[in-house]
């Protein structure tokens, strides 16, 4: 079963994010980049489905600057078969639609039974690529999926919804966006890592359409104010002072 995984390279969850003084982006020096964790579920699921089918290829498709190669190689080390990087400049930016268009263009006509992607990227949290790619390719899309069972030309997916589960049957090919809980991404074996260095990775220079939605400015979240220790002679006095502060200053009670 051939499938594709749309993968984005994002800053590590523990990375220290600083906004550039001019507000045009983040400082990337000293930031460790990793595979978007939700996309990693997609890689794992694609590999599982391929293993269950006993044949097929998993292709990783990513848009990003040169450094994205490292993340694609990581996915190849996990067991994916080939990678495509739609290469853009380090600070080149377009909106989700332009990005989805470029991805759809690359994914078109390739016999992928399922196109996996993360439910959202953890950096900009747009959560638009999956559905947009599906739309552009004329494919059905199931989002926020925690279970996928493929049988013939259909897949039965579980989705997490408020207070319960939704079971969706979808005709394949389809786009499936992955949620935590779908699987436990594997740890790449060393032979996998070694082999990944030799697996095909196609780097295509890509020009994205001009954005229709642009980012005006990036800002750091407001600095958290320092805490305050309520002083008082005894517990009762402290409690009274605390209630007063909560009511009058914080206005929360």
């Amino acid at each position: 079963m051939n499938s594709a995984v749309i993968l984005k390279q994002v800053p590590d969850t523990e990375a220290l994010i600083k906004v550039k003084p001019d507000g045009t982006g983040i400082v990337k020096e000293g930031v460790k980049f990793v595979i978007n964790p939700y996309d990693e579920f997609g890689v794992e699921e694609a590999l599982k489905k391929k293993e269950a089918a006993g044949s097929g290829e998993v292709t990783i498709v990513s848009i990003g600057p040169d450094r994205s190669v490292e993340s694609i190689r990581t996915a190849l080390a996990m067991g994916a078969d080939k990678g495509v990087l739609l290469k853009i400049g380090e600070d080149e930016y377009s909106d989700a639609l332009a990005t989805a268009k470029a991805l759809a263009e690359e994914l078109k006509g390739k016999d992928y039974k399922i196109i996996f992607c993360g439910k959202q990227a953890i950096d900009d949290d747009m959560a638009q690529i999956g559905p947009m790619v599906a739309e552009l390719m004329g494919l059905p899309c199931v989002t926020v999926v925690t279970k996928v069972d493929v049988s013939g030309d259909k897949a039965v997916c579980s989705r997490e919804i408020e207070g319960g589960k939704e079971i969706v049957e979808v005709a394949l090919p389809a786009v499936i966006s992955c949620q935590k809980g779908l699987n436990e991404p594997r740890y790449a074996s060393l032979p996998g890592i070694m082999k990944a260095k030799k697996k095909p990775l196609d780097i295509k220079d890509t020009k994205l359409d001009a954005p229709k939605a642009t980012i005006d400015k990036w800002e750091n979240p407001p600095q958290r104010a320092a805490g305050r220790i309520i002083e008082g002679d005894d517990a009762a006095a402290k409690a009274a002072a605390l209630v007063k502060a909560l009511r009058q200053e914080a206005k929360v009670i």
């Binding site: 523990e14 990375a15 990793v34």
Partner: peptide, 15 residues
């Protein structure tokens, strides 16, 4: 994975 990404097993950011 923490050691790989942040060079410590605890999972704190390396910075």
């Amino acid at each position: 994975q923490n050691m790989e990404k942040n060079s410590n097993p605890y999972g704190f950011g390396f910075h």
